[in-house]
Computed example of a mutant assay.
Amino acid sequence: MLYQFLYSLTDYFSLFNVFKYITFRMICGAITSFFLVYFLMPPFIRFMKLKQFGQIVREEGPSHHKKKTGTPTMGGTVVLFAILVCCILWCKLSNPFVWLVLLVTIGFGLIGFLDDYLKIKRKKNLGLRAREKILFQIVLVGLFYFIAFKGLGFSSQLVFPFFKNLIIDLGIGYLLFSMLVILGSSNAMNLTDGLDGLAIVPFIVVAGVYSVLSYVVGNIKFATYLLLPYIPYASELAIVCAIFIGAGLGFLWYNSYPAEIFMGDVGSLGLGAGLGSIAILVKQEFLLVIAGALFVMEALSVMLQVAYFKLTHGKRIFKMAPLHHHFELLGWPENKVVVRFWIISLIFGLIALSTLKIR
């Protein structure tokens, strides 16, 4: 909206021609979303404290986490609001990919919002049932698939990294694959969000990786040179990713140790799903496993722990799952676990980018 207004002034002032460049709007979007979260979060924190809407810490978690009970939660509400506003301001509103990502991000965020609200209302770590959350998520992904693949004619071909000509058309099977990617990304980020600042920095790293990927596959010269599929609408998603980064940095300002507010399921489910939808739309789904390897490791630690516990009648692989709790119980201070996991995430993000030249 703001972009379209400013760009329309080009006929009168050539200076406004700068707004046609994606890189310039990426910077504007990131800065705007950062300051929007930065200024809106303090009154939101005060409101949550006034209403006594605080975090409900699960009983089976590490004992020293009990002190976090009552810390304001649902900070993801402000983050998602900032993302929505900034996408409307800085993106081409005629681009269907922007709306598809917002549909998934805000939709999953609403599911998380309901889950958080029920936990607060019941004063216990019990919100939506798992099957209820999964059902709502499946419906949303089904809507995403119907619009993208049936409405827009999006390709159901699966492109593999590292190979020039390995392409498989999944047909209707891409619906199941889309569910795997988006639900996996969303719930993996949700599992990672257990320590102050732990989930948001890996999210920023992955968003940074996909800002580059979106820009590359949306530019026919770069896509052809790197042997990647050219996707005309994808370049606008680079701006969405930049907005993700700015909003994430704004949230980190208040979520860094010791956290003044937590993201809540409204944030972790929404942001994780947003990354998954972008990975699908730029045809780089497999790179999400590399760029978001930390999220994968956290999710796998839970699945392995549960499976091993059932198979061995009570034995455990890790002291506690998800993985970050294991290292806490080994004696690592919380902020050391967080920073070291950030480093791991950054390394995997760089590895994901390096694969662009490997074909």
Rank of each mutant, 00 (worst) to 15 (best):
I343T: 11
L9R: 11
T71G: 05
F160M: 10
H325V: 07
T224N: 13
T69Q: 14
F154S: 02
T224V: 07
I83L: 10
V18A: 11
L237Y: 05
L294R: 02
H65Q: 14
L191E: 00
Q4M: 13
T69K: 14
P43Y: 08
Y225P: 04
N17W: 03
M41T: 10
F53W: 14
H64A: 09
A321L: 06
S178E: 05
G54S: 10
K315Q: 11
I278W: 06
C241Q: 06
I27T: 09
W99F: 10
T71I: 12
V37Q: 00
L271Y: 05
G218K: 00
F327I: 06
E60G: 10
L110E: 00
Q55T: 08
Q157G: 12
T355S: 12
V85C: 10
P229V: 09
F149C: 13
L103I: 12
I231Y: 01
V216E: 04
F47L: 15
A223I: 08
A30Q: 02
P232C: 09
G270N: 03
T69W: 02
F318Y: 12
F24V: 15
K124S: 14
V78D: 01
M320H: 06
P333G: 09
L275A: 04
I83V: 13
K164A: 13
L356F: 10
F309G: 05
F222W: 12
G218S: 06
L350E: 10
Y3C: 05
K315D: 09
A321H: 02
V212L: 13
A30T: 06
Y21E: 11
A188Q: 03
A82K: 01
V216Y: 03
A293Q: 08
S214F: 04
F244Y: 15
G127Q: 01
F35R: 06
D193C: 08
F309P: 00
F341M: 10
L140S: 04
L140K: 04
A321R: 03
I147S: 06
I56C: 10
Y230W: 12
C87E: 00
Y225L: 15
V78Q: 01
I27L: 15
F5V: 15
A130D: 09
L175M: 11
I172G: 05
V212Y: 05
G142L: 11
G349F: 00
A223W: 04
N125T: 10
F13T: 10
L84F: 15
A352G: 08
Q284Y: 03
L183G: 00
L311R: 13
S155E: 07
I167V: 15
Y117T: 15
P202Q: 06
A238H: 01
K66T: 13
G331I: 09
R46V: 12
T71A: 05
V240C: 04
K283S: 11
F39K: 09
G107E: 01
G61L: 04
L228Y: 00
F160G: 06
S277A: 15
I106Q: 07
L228D: 02
L330W: 11
F35G: 08
E60R: 11
V78L: 01
V205W: 01
A82F: 03
L195R: 01
L249H: 05
S268A: 14
L50S: 13
T23M: 09
F108D: 04
V289K: 01
T77N: 03
L84Y: 10
I200W: 02
V205M: 07
K133E: 06
L93S: 11
F149R: 02
G314L: 11
